[in-house]
Nucleic acid binder design. Sequence first.
DNA 1: CTATCCCTTCGAGTGCACTTTAAGTCAAAT
DNA 2: ATTTGACTTAAAGTGCACTCGAAGGGATAG
Lengths: 138, 138
Amino acid sequence: MAEKQYKIGEFSRKVNLSSFTLRYYEDEGLIKPRRNQNGQRFYGEQDVKWLKFLLHLKGTGMTMAELKQYVAWRAQGDATIQQRIKLLRRVKQDAEDQIRELENNLAIVNHKIDWYSGKLDETINADEDFEQYLKKFE
Amino acid sequence: MAEKQYKIGEFSRKVNLSSFTLRYYEDEGLIKPRRNQNGQRFYGEQDVKWLKFLLHLKGTGMTMAELKQYVAWRAQGDATIQQRIKLLRRVKQDAEDQIRELENNLAIVNHKIDWYSGKLDETINADEDFEQYLKKFE
DNA sequence: CTATCCCTTCGAGTGCACTTTAAGTCAAAT
DNA sequence: ATTTGACTTAAAGTGCACTCGAAGGGATAG
């Protein structure tokens, strides 16, 4: 039993990207679906996995240019593994920084919500401003 | 002793935004510096705090439109606190989702780095693909 | 005095990652 | 048979958040 093949429409629903975007990614060299005798694209399970991996990379903030670089290195074989590791380490660092910053920003938002809540139920003095309130947590 | 006042150039260095951006934010209604008798903008410590708070909100992913809405509500006084809380809760939720997604993506990147490293030092079988490798962590 | 900064309006330009259109042909599903 | 979906190329459009430029004039620091 051969593996499931998807045409672009079905595949686009599966990976939650428009057909436009899939063709765009293909133009950019990120994916290479097979074609049938009529030139229609067919995607298999490998393409699903590969695309999902790309989307994970993308989701860390990697740009198109970096993804293309990564793909180019991959196509060159094992000789470029060091470069790929180096790029991924940068991506890792970057993602960690983003997480830290988000957590930082989130903490402020949480304090602000608490402060507003306190104002509403009057457990916070009407005169105490957010700055003063924040000092309690330093 | 009066508090320190900044002209736009000094302020822009302090908050790490260009003068262009500061004027743009002002046009959008996000900040309202005082002016001296010649029309030059002066920013004080309050402006530093307010802008930093805005940047925290911004850093969670809030758009300009949302920031403007928030500022508009703030200008309307305490009657809009409920709306502001509601917006901030959405922002909070959003930031939490972003963090989770980043962590998720990061985990994949980390596995990939480990897998490449394993390939390089030959602790991973040359034939074992990333998919198989990942299964070990399920 | 002179270099540097700041002011205004406002429209145009930038960068990124899509997103859509056009025009015409061909394939596949019901 | 008919609707729906797929194919091509090349170019233009979108949305967001800036970012910059022109033109002309006033302010301030060294």
